[in-house]
C-alpha cells in the first residue's frame, strides 16, 4: 500500500470518527452560546444512542430510531433546563448528574430488556443508516488522486454524515442570520439586556436547549445505528467530553467547530493506524499521546498560547430576574 492509499483510508476513518463529535459539539454550541454550560453532552449522546438502538431493533425502522434518539436527548436537555434554568441549580452539577443517570440507566434497562449484559439486540439492516454511494463514485475511482478521495472519503458514508456537514452552515445561519440566533447569543452574553428588551430569558434558553437535544440526538443515533448495529455499554466512551473540548478549541464558533472536530477525529484515526507501527526518525510513538492530544491542545489554547478562547460571558450563571 503506498502512502496515498494510507492517507485516503485514514481520512475516511477520520470523517467517520468526527461525525459524532461534530453533532455533539454543535449541540453544545447552542446551549453554551445561550449561557448554559453543558457537561451533560456525554450523557445525552449515550442515552440517545441507547434509545435509537432499542427502537430501531423493535421497529426495524432507522427513522423511528432517529426519532427516539432525538426525543430522548431533548428530554435530557429539558431536565437540564428544569434544573438549571427553572430551579437555578448549578449547571455543572446538573450535567454531571445527567451523565450518571444516562450511564446507569442504559445498562440497567438494557440488561433487563435484552439480557445481554447491557448490549441491545442486533439491529436489522432496515433499522440502520447504511452507506450511500454518491453518483459517479465508481466512474471516477480510476482518476488519480481525486478519484480515490471522492470514492472513499466523500462518497460511501451514511446519510447522517452528510446531515452533520449540512448542520454546520445551518447552525451558522441560525446563530448569525436569524432573530432567534441574535437573541440566543445575546442571552449568553447579557441576559439582563435581553430581559429588558421584553424577551423571556427562560423561554429563549429552553429553546436553545431543545436545539441542543435535537443535535445530540443525531450524535447518539449515529453511534448506535449508523456506525454500528447495536448499543454497547458506555458506547460514547468520552466522546461527549472530546466534543466539549472541540467546542472550546473552536472558540464557540460553528465553522471552526467543524475543523476542530475533523482534527480530533483525524488524531483518533491516526492513533488507531499507528497502533504498533513506528515513525521514521522518532520510532514508535505511544498511542496514548494521540489520545491525550485533543485535551492537551485544548488546555494550551485555554492558556491563551494560541489566540484567546473567550467563553460566553453569562455562561454558568443562573439568571435571576430582579423583583
Amino acid at each position: 500500500m503506498d502512502y496515498f492509499d494510507i492517507f485516503v483510508s485514514i481520512m475516511g476513518s477520520a470523517i467517520r470518527l468526527s461525525i459524532p463529535l461534530l453533532f455533539t459539539a454543535l449541540a453544545g454550541l447552542f446551549s453554551e452560546r445561550a449561557g448554559i454550560f453543558d457537561i451533560g453532552l456525554e450523557g445525552k449522546m449515550l442515552a440517545s444512542a441507547f434509545a435509537a438502538a432499542c427502537v430501531a431493533y423493535w421497529t426495524g425502522n432507522a427513522w423511528a430510531g432517529l426519532g427516539a434518539g432525538i426525543g430522548t436527548a431533548i428530554l435530557f436537555s429539558l431536565l437540564h433546563g428544569f434544573a438549571s434554568i427553572t430551579n437555578r441549580g448549578n449547571q455543572i452539577v446538573s450535567g454531571v448528574a445527567l451523565n450518571f443517570v444516562a450511564a446507569g440507566l442504559t445498562i440497567v434497562l438494557g440488561t433487563a430488556w435484552f439480557q445481554q449484559g447491557g448490549r441491545t439486540g442486533q439491529v436489522p439492516p432496515s433499522g440502520r443508516f447504511s452507506a450511500i454511494t454518491l453518483p459517479g463514485a465508481d466512474l471516477v475511482r480510476e482518476v488519480p488522486i481525486i478519484g480515490p478521495l471522492y470514492a472513499n472519503v466523500v462518497s460511501g458514508n451514511n446519510l447522517l454524515t452528510y446531515i452533520a456537514f449540512l448542520m454546520v452552515p445551518l447552525s451558522w445561519w441560525v446563530l448569525y442570520r436569524t432573530r432567534f440566533g441574535l437573541r440566543l447569543r445575546a442571552v449568553g452574553e447579557n441576559p439582563g439586556a435581553v430581559d429588558t428588551a421584553g424577551i423571556s430569558v427562560t423561554w429563549l434558553r429552553y429553546r436553545a436547549l431543545i436545539v441542543t437535544g435535537f443535535l445530540a440526538g443525531f450524535a447518539g443515533t449515529y453511534l448506535s445505528i449508523a456506525q454500528s448495529a447495536a448499543f454497547i455499554n458506555n458506547m460514547s466512551a468520552g466522546k461527549g467530553y472530546i466534543a466539549l473540548a472541540a467546542l472550546i478549541f473552536a472558540k464557540w464558533k460553528p465553522v471552526p467547530v467543524m475543523f476542530a472536530c475533523l482534527l480530533f477525529g483525524f488524531l483518533d484515526a491516526f492513533a488507531n493506524f499507528m497502533q504498533g507501527k513506528s515513525l521514521p526518525l522518532i520510532g514508535e510513538v505511544p498511542v496514548q499521546i494521540f489520545q491525550a492530544l485533543p485535551y492537551i491542545l485544548t488546555c494550551v489554547l485555554l492558556a491563551g498560547f494560541i489566540g484567546v478562547a473567550r467563553p460566553p460571558k453569562a455562561g454558568g450563571v443562573p439568571y435571576t430576574k430582579e423583583r
Binding site: N87, G89, S94
Partner: peptide, 9 residues
C-alpha cells in the same frame, strides 16, 4: 446528584 445537587432549591 440531580435532586440533592442540581435541584436543591
Amino acid at each position: 446528584i440531580l435532586f440533592a445537587g442540581a435541584l436543591e432549591y
